[in-house]
Design a protein around this nucleic acid. Structure first.
Lengths: 136, 136, 136, 136
DNA sequence: GTGGTCTAGACCACG
DNA sequence: GTGGTCTAGACCACC
């Protein structure tokens, strides 16, 4: 599981960390129960501040993706802990709404969006993220 | 065109303004060439500062959704000005990737996501004519 | 002498009027002593506010390009009245400096800039220099 | 890198800041990757408001001259990010046209303009001080 | 009356 | 300590 940090990105670093860990789980690179590097280790690997990594981990814990134990370290939560809840549904619904609204405004058809979704699913099923590190 | 501001939202106010104007355009409530309230008028309606509205308007102008004229106010840009460009495609691609990744992590199937997209498109289409013939 | 107003331009309308009158003089379309449309006439032709035309005219008068008489209307000033003065030299020097500075920053060579200047001069000379006996 | 603000100038303060930073880059005083003062520092140095500095920085970022990072401050963009694009070419073409038109009207010969361009280039190449009357 | 510019001062997000 | 956001209020440019 390699994480790429783009210091030029408009997204804060802790969000990049969070996003790429979620991608890792979706790709199957990170499995339930698997252990992640310690906050210090990850921060050192990425050359960033340890508070930044900690913030990403904490958010993932709050969202049900990770479990943080004082002694046992950080592990990927079992699937049951990260089922879709109301908060997730509301948030993703909003994101989808904005993606669709902007697509309509820009003249992108529903077929194109659906195809993009399908292709994106395939990249995850294939287990190959080919998108490298664009704008993380 | 009514805009609701949520001061508790994690999204900054100017982004909420931006998003809801994009929704309005997608819904066809705002048509090309139509005039938006002045920054002062909108700010007063929403109970927020005029600079905040101005920032939302400026971003929409940069993105090609609006045109801001010195004294003639703010109008919705013609469709040609808001076609999909590379910057948009990269950004929306990233958003879609994160939506899909989180959906996979949360056990949401591709069918569910596709259905949500479809339903969202329908809510916009139901809104009626999404501009396109306003230029005659 | 036809003037085109671009309401979408970032330049104020009165500046567009001013600029195009200067271009007209440079092209020889407007000759010394020639009469310009009245403020009202020009405003009506262009479909703009008469104060806007008036502001453009007033600036040109201040700069020595026009003479405004209550009775005889607006005429192009004789060449002697629009010779280069210190104020002009300072201002154009500053404009040239910024053009050059930005060209350097953007990797545009001196040759390219000089060529652009030459080409621009040619477009004006092609327009036909019939303005008295100037030596340009 | 010293910036002079002229409160009496017809150019807005944020533009003066922008222009002089571009001059600094052209002169080689500011090199790619070099850090600029923080908005607060610069504002304090110049005796102006931090929002004014911020606006100048933001414009330079939009134009590709600077990169603004959340916590790492403001740095000069690498040369690749500030290559000539269509928008620049159109804008500089217009500026050159007006400089030439006014020069013709004022009886300034093409040779004089070309010489001024050459001299201006030399002041930048020399890395010398051109600041006699910058944006005053 | 419109948007543009500038100021002043506060709190937050980020690292 | 950095830039980001938001507020409040002033005056100017433009039409």
């Amino acid at each position: 599981m390699i994480i790429h940090i783009n210091l030029e990105s408009k997204y804060p670093i802790y969000t990049q960390v969070r996003n790429q860990i979620i991608e890792g789980i979706a790709l199957g690179e990170l499995k339930s129960g698997e252990r992640l590097p310690s906050v210090r280790g990850m921060a050192s690997d990425l050359g960033i501040n340890l508070h930044t990594v900690n913030k990403g981990y904490k958010q993932l814990e709050k969202e049900g993706f990770l479990q943080i134990h004082r002694q046992r370290g950080v592990i990927v939560a079992p699937e049951e802990h990260r089922k879709a809840d109301d908060f997730y549904r509301e948030d993703s619904g909003h994101q989808v709404k904005m993606v669709v609204a902007e697509a309509i405004c820009r003249g992108v058809s529903e077929e194109e969006v659906t195809r993009l979704i399908k292709e994106t699913y395939q990249t995850f099923e294939k287990g190959g993220d080919t998108d490298g590190n664009s704008s993380h």
